[in-house]
Design a protein around this nucleic acid. Sequence first.
DNA 1: AGCATATGTCAGCCTTGTTGACATTCCAAG
DNA 2: CTTGGAATGTCAACAAGGCTGACATATGCT
Lengths: 168, 168
Amino acid sequence: MSETRAPQGFGESLLYLTDEQLRQGIEAMFFAYRGFTADPDRILDDLAYGRAHHRAVHFINRAPGTTVNNLLAILGVTKQSLNRVLRSLIEDGLVESRVGTADKRERHLYLTERGKALETRLSDAQRARMRAAFREAGPEAVSGFRQVLEAMMDPDMRRAYTRLRDNG
Amino acid sequence: MSETRAPQGFGESLLYLTDEQLRQGIEAMFFAYRGFTADPDRILDDLAYGRAHHRAVHFINRAPGTTVNNLLAILGVTKQSLNRVLRSLIEDGLVESRVGTADKRERHLYLTERGKALETRLSDAQRARMRAAFREAGPEAVSGFRQVLEAMMDPDMRRAYTRLRDNG
DNA sequence: AGCATATGTCAGCCTTGTTGACATTCCAAG
DNA sequence: CTTGGAATGTCAACAAGGCTGACATATGCT
């Protein structure tokens, strides 16, 4: 495609853009994501829930009262797919769906106490790994980690991410 | 769990370990991984292949002649799951499976020319995004990015990752 | 009144993961 | 030389969680 090697004569400044460095970045993402999801996945396995339930629970906890449409946009799935997950969470009493007051077409989503308990359990596990990684790598590395990840997002997702971050 | 807030009196040094910072890291991983896979996914959709095919093609290209068992360990799936993917790639003439010479039980996997062409197309797309992100974030950030990701991997995966990296 | 929006639901399909069972081939230890 | 175990392949069945398409309902807006 382009830029197979850093141009000669530019010293070390662009060495991190060689195909080899880029491939290492790609593989790092692949292996790290596996670690990232491993701990919650183990917990979810015992509960007949999957990663999709985790994501829903995470973002409902993050923005209580969010609407279904909102959640669809953040998760990037179809309403049918989300609905299946949401239905089981509501049936099991982890999520509550309240008809909107201003606009009665909307359903606002909240975690119940049991839902909050699961969210805490899952995110404790995930945070523990993230904390260990952050501690091992140090503050400078953490800053770089976030900068690169932000730059890798699609613009829409980056907006969603910063909105969540800044409203937190 | 623990360490809900950075301990008082430690100044700013541990602020990146607050639950809020950790949650931002978690969400960054989630949104960034979506971007990370988006471009290859679009290409694969047109070809009736999925992410699993991409992963297989990537690692066969990375280590030509690797055995099925090797690939299983790296991908972290069952042989049945990998076999389905591998079979279609072999049938379609993208991957060649050669019986081992030293140990004839083993099958050594190679990309054909067509397989290499697909690999190039997929990784070009993925590298382009990674390159843009690296360039935007800068070399210091890239270093931190990789440090945190490495620290997030399971030990086994970290070994696989560094082995691939150092043999490259 | 009529169109658009938000949501839910049914049916069916695909990919990709799983487990279990079993055959084949081959190496290596007894 | 026989036998056990390892590596591989294959078949079957199943589940999660994506997808599309179609349709119903309630509500809001013009």
